[in-house]
Amino acid sequence: MEGSGTPNGYELVEDEARLVELVAEASTAPRYALDTEFHREQTYFPRVGLVQLAWGERVILLDPLTTSLEPLIALLDSPAIAIMHAPDQDLEILRQVVGRVPARLMDTQTAAGFCGLRSASLRDLLARFLDIDVAKGDRLTDWLRRPLQPEQLAYAAADVRHLTPLWAALQARLEASGRLEWCEEECERLRLRQSAARRPEDAWLRVRELRRLPRRSQPLAIAVAAWRERRAAQLDIPVRYVLSDLALAAVVQSAPDSVAALAAVRGVDGRAMSGSAGKGLLEAIAQARRSPPRVPRKPKGPDRSHLQPVVALVSAWLSQVARDDDLDPALVATRADLTSFLDGEPDARLAGGWRYERYGSRVEELLTGNAAVALEPDGKLRLEKRSGRPL
């Protein structure tokens, strides 16, 4: 084992009793850095190769292939704040492995977005805020092969070693700009989004070809995509190995009722669908015909679908204002966020919190005819009170 006082500056933990001791210590710290290394290229569920923790002067590397990660639950449930960078997949892994995500979370990439930096990498942020140059990692490294090499362990340790000082620097910038509360709200939104398991019935929403289908085809899209999701989870293989997105859409459109008809669908591997897979898919199709899944309808406010032609213009204005405000435009609103807002969906991101106060309320002024978008001589767009005087 490597102690924090050694030249390498990390401790490799391969013993559960030692992990319990360290978790008890970390749980008393105000904050801790957290990261994971994993693979999921050939599997449905991510396979964890290493978990990294850092607090105070300690850097801990946990080997999940030799010890249970269950003791981490006490740390994740503690009042200590987890500092992470772009943690979506890490949170998914924690939820899968130990059934928890941190009770409190701050994301340095989100924080950087509130400082005007777009999708900033950890390496770039460390160079910008702490003047620290860390080596680039090898994207092809195998985190599941043992023994892990010294250079792998050093890279993994570097991923968490400077996270808490980086957060301190970002926090100071956010406090100075009055945006710390915005960042906290956004990080909690991120934490809650990853705290619940994904439902197979929602899988169709992640497939663009299925989202574009007419409403009459959506019940079958729900059923077929849910079958693919469950099949992939059962076999622990990527969903694309079961059916590609193109084949999925083709199956929904053709709705085959026999193995021969299924094998004739574009993109479907007839050999792969000749056994239990094909039987299961055909049964899912038949069941959807007998009892169509309910297509969820979101409660809506006033119908503003006639305003869709202005999406491009308002989206351009929002991006410009975000940059003027020194914010990552994608953090303010994506085109999909704006469309949801224009559709009157009450849970649209622009409809609540800091986004509505700063931006959504101004878009509403435009929608109600109280404001207009003007083009300045320098090419910038400006939202201004409408005069009502036609040209």
Results as ranks from 00 to 15, higher is better:
residue 80 A to G: 09
residue 64 P to W: 03
residue 81 I to V: 15
residue 77 D to Q: 11
residue 57 E to D: 13
residue 81 I to S: 07
residue 84 M to K: 00
residue 73 I to Y: 00
residue 82 A to E: 00
residue 98 V to N: 06
residue 74 A to K: 12
residue 77 D to M: 04
residue 70 E to R: 12
residue 93 I to L: 14
residue 71 P to R: 02
residue 86 A to G: 15
residue 65 L to A: 14
residue 69 L to V: 13
residue 57 E to C: 04
residue 55 W to C: 01
residue 90 D to W: 13
residue 95 R to C: 08
residue 94 L to G: 03
residue 83 I to Y: 10
residue 70 E to W: 01
residue 91 L to F: 04
residue 64 P to M: 02
residue 90 D to Y: 13
residue 98 V to H: 06
residue 77 D to Y: 05
residue 57 E to S: 12
residue 57 E to I: 00
residue 95 R to V: 04
residue 71 P to M: 05
residue 57 E to A: 13
residue 97 V to A: 09
residue 81 I to R: 09
residue 94 L to Q: 07
residue 69 L to W: 02
residue 93 I to T: 04
residue 61 L to I: 01
residue 52 Q to K: 13
residue 71 P to N: 07
residue 61 L to H: 03
residue 71 P to T: 09
residue 73 I to K: 12
residue 53 L to M: 11
residue 87 P to N: 02
residue 77 D to L: 08
residue 80 A to P: 01
residue 64 P to Q: 04
residue 82 A to R: 00
residue 56 G to N: 07
residue 77 D to E: 15
residue 93 I to G: 04
residue 59 V to S: 10
residue 55 W to E: 03
residue 75 L to C: 11
residue 73 I to A: 14
residue 76 L to E: 02
residue 94 L to E: 03
residue 86 A to W: 00
residue 55 W to P: 03
residue 57 E to H: 07
residue 98 V to K: 05
residue 52 Q to A: 15
residue 78 S to P: 02
residue 66 T to V: 07
residue 84 M to A: 08
residue 51 V to N: 10
residue 97 V to K: 00
residue 98 V to A: 09
residue 62 L to A: 07
residue 71 P to F: 01
residue 90 D to H: 07
residue 52 Q to P: 06
residue 92 E to D: 15
residue 93 I to Q: 08
residue 68 S to A: 11
residue 87 P to I: 00
residue 83 I to W: 08
residue 61 L to D: 01
residue 88 D to S: 15
residue 93 I to V: 15
residue 65 L to K: 05
residue 83 I to P: 03
residue 68 S to V: 04
residue 93 I to A: 13
residue 61 L to A: 06
residue 92 E to G: 13
residue 72 L to D: 03
residue 96 Q to T: 15
residue 88 D to T: 14
residue 55 W to R: 01
residue 80 A to L: 06
residue 64 P to S: 08
residue 62 L to G: 06
residue 70 E to V: 14
residue 89 Q to H: 15
residue 54 A to S: 15
residue 91 L to V: 13
residue 57 E to F: 00
residue 65 L to P: 11
residue 59 V to M: 12
residue 66 T to L: 10
residue 69 L to K: 08
residue 91 L to G: 06
residue 71 P to K: 05
residue 87 P to H: 01
